[in-house]
Design a binder for these strands. Structure first.
Lengths: 219, 219
DNA sequence: CATTGTGAACTCATTCACAGCG
DNA sequence: CGCTGTGAATGAGTTCACAATG
């Protein structure tokens, strides 16, 4: 069933986008969709869509296309988002609070079950989904008790490395890092970085160099 | 001076990271750095560093390395962050407020000069850098008067496309999109997407498929 | 017969390996 | 001598083009 050649990293992010788009299509009442239609709505090439899906199986019907709901279910299985995930966050400042309150996470099965900060003013306070902010010293025990599977870092850059190491010690080896620094971890730990300022640097670079040279696009 | 072969997209994001790392090195008192040292601290191959820089000029001294401060200045010139940029944001909810308050932006020369929302409760209120929240109807005129160069979208997905089009009409053709949807724009408009949930999908995918298979890494 | 699934061709990106040079 | 700069080699990812097929 699963034909495991090496799968490009970009394939995963595209598949995640296909999934989003399929939700819209389902909402709009579509039952079937062709690779061409799905592709253009995600701003990629139709062959890309078919190739991406081809890494994981044969989900389409030749001459017809893909069943919207069925393909969505398959993709969610591939991405392992056909279940809920427990997350813990460190840093309940402006950004941390915004993340805790972001409805997109629970909507997709990502639930915060623990929150930490090192500010004595904040410790003990209750934040959005009814979580008591704990001191960082309690990270290890709380994370284990609450069965946190994904650690979110929303601290200043200076704290990020230390927090990452605490997560690792507590056996959390998947980290979503919002701090503008790269953390160094062992090979068995997964890190995804969300660095706002790098994105801005890319924008300004393109504004200076690309715009009106060749006309280009989305990243 | 500028040898313009085609430059990989990834080169730009790496160069931005080199710049970050150089700031740390400067802070730590280093005057010179080798491609090897810079490379490992950014978790890339030394040849990659040299190749990336090579697209833009010759900044090193053979047998010695790169002058930290000088290289940083050159990179900032390349990225066009050797100047300030004006930004406008739409959507002053939890995320929008966190973005407005994020010290990383002004620290790097990105300043918010306009903020918009469609919530009558919020319109007229003053937010962080002393900005009055304006209604979206005033986007076009305000953006032009305040000389906004980069538009930030921090609205729900349902609003994003409409806001992007308003920005375009107001001649803002660089957009940082925090909404979890892809906006469709003309070729002359630049978009960078920051989609939290896609990053989470990538993490859960890797948790399911990669971890303990080959042990891998940072994205 | 329209559309998928996929090897082959192509394009793009990274790494190697070493000549060039301070 | 050591480290940069870079062409050449390798590797990865995308697109083409068409055979397979419900």
């Amino acid at each position: 069933m699963r034909k495991s050649r090496k799968i490009p990293k970009a394939t995963i992010t595209r598949i995640s986008r296909y999934c989003r788009q399929l939700e819209f299509l389902e909402f709009d009442g579509y039952r079937m969709v062709s690779s061409e239609k799905l592709a253009w709505s995600c701003q990629v090439n139709p062959a890309q869509v078919r190739k991406d899906l081809g890494y994981f199986g044969e989900f389409g019907v030749r001459g017809v296309g893909y069943d919207v709901r069925e393909l969505m279910r398959e993709i969610k299985k591939i991405l392992a988002v056909n279940r809920d995930w427990n997350m813990g966050i460190v840093g309940v400042g402006n950004l941390g609070s915004a993340i805790l309150n972001n409805q997109n996470f629970p909507d997709r099965g990502f639930f915060f079950v623990a929150a930490f900060d090192n500010d004595p003013q904040k410790i003990g306070r209750t934040v959005f989904p009814g979580l008591e902010i704990k001191p960082i010293e309690e990270l290890a025990t709380t994370v284990i008790n609450s069965e946190v599977e994904i650690g979110v870092i929303a601290t200043p850059a200076s704290q990020a490395q230390r927090i990452a190491e605490l997560f690792l010690e507590a056996n959390v080896n998947a980290i979503l890092n919002f701090s503008p620094t790269q953390i160094i971890v062992h090979d068995y730990c997964l890190v995804e970085n969300i660095d706002f300022t790098i994105k801005l640097d890319v924008l300004t670079y393109k504004l200076k160099h690309e715009l009106n040279h060749n006309g280009r696009v989305q990243g």
